[in-house]
Nucleic acid binder design. Structure first.
Lengths: 177, 177
DNA sequence: AACATACCATCCGAAACATACTGTTGTCAA
DNA sequence: TTGACAACAGTATGTTTCGGATGGTATGTT
């Protein structure tokens, strides 16, 4: 509750998740929330969700309460400082583009066979698209808009990627004749 | 030239870049190549391009020649082992999806104002798209296909992202009336 | 009660990261 | 011709992230 720390995207994920739920949450709760939502477009290992809240609590952005018995879990909740930090981050201009890391694209770049790649990619991206569309159907977009909007971009990217690999596969077929 | 090491995506970037150019290259050369090509869909800090070739040389995937005078730069080139490793990686089935890290999407998810975000995002993504289209116009896609194909997916993602933010901005306008 | 299994939390070594710093070479004006 | 400066090339540093390993706690089964 004293040191100055630098807030990273990971920090804001913790603050943001906590802001979406009244009351307290344990790292394990956060882990579950993150993988079901934000994890789709910002991956982080679950171990971060143990280390980061402790750091934030140390700097006064969260309060920390440890259970006195049983699993002795730590319960975190936002402080006023934490809520302010989140709000001010949300208001700051963000021109930075996304960072993409696509192993398949890497292989394609270096000359891998497009048809082979397409097979694997189509399978996983079709599955992902189905998953996202499941969420979208479930949540009509009322209430908080943010998650729904973010999901829409995820769906678009998946569709685009699927189209791309379908074309690659077709093209490869034609070429081989 | 003895230890077993694990090959990471970074390793394959080094091997791949070296495979595209006859003869030798210095880390500085690699740095230039990477940022102009592969860097668009797989970021890595330039310091990695000094550390990684040394590691690869130690394990026999590259040969290392140091200049005897002047800057004493280190020149690397592929060994047969390195070439084989690259080829076998290219041939391996790759179903893993891409990993996306989008700071704007993160803010949108947690409730930032879509219109504000759109402004910054549109500026940078339009610029990026123009850059990519410049490459595409320059390179007709003859010769090596890989880089050109990879570029096509980059262009698609940019277009999709721009459409998305344009819609968000419009929607936000409507809502505010 | 004793044991097996799943759940929950944390730790830690290795890799990746950003960036500051050092030395080298080329150039151009005085 | 020289010395000041910019660009080039590489190294060193401290920090953050990664993700598997580990160990404790609760729950279910016999």
């Amino acid at each position: 509750m004293s040191d100055e720390i630098q807030l990273t995207p990971t920090s804001y994920i913790v603050l943001g998740l906590l802001s979406m739920f009244v009351g307290e949450a344990t790292p394990y709760d956060l882990k579950g929330m993150a993988s079901a939502s934000v994890g789709q477009f910002w991956t982080l290992p679950h171990s971060q969700l143990y280390a980061e809240p402790a750091r934030l609590a140390g700097a006064g952005y969260l309060t920390e309460n440890q259970e006195q018995s049983g699993r002795r879990r730590k319960l975190y909740s936002l402080t006023e400082l934490g809520r302010e930090a989140l709000q001010s981050w949300l208001g700051v201009f963000t021109p930075e583009p996304y960072v993409l890391r696509d192993p398949a694209l890497l292989k394609l770049f270096f000359g891998a066979n497009a048809n082979d790649l397409a097979e694997g990619q189509l399978a996983t991206h079709r599955q992902k698209l189905a998953e996202y569309e499941g969420y979208a159907a479930h949540d009509p977009g009322t209430g908080r808009r943010g998650p729904w909007q973010a999901l829409q971009l995820g769906i678009r990217h998946e569709r685009e990627t699927i189209d791309f690999w379908e074309e690659q596969a077709q093209q490869a077929q034609l070429d081989s004749k």
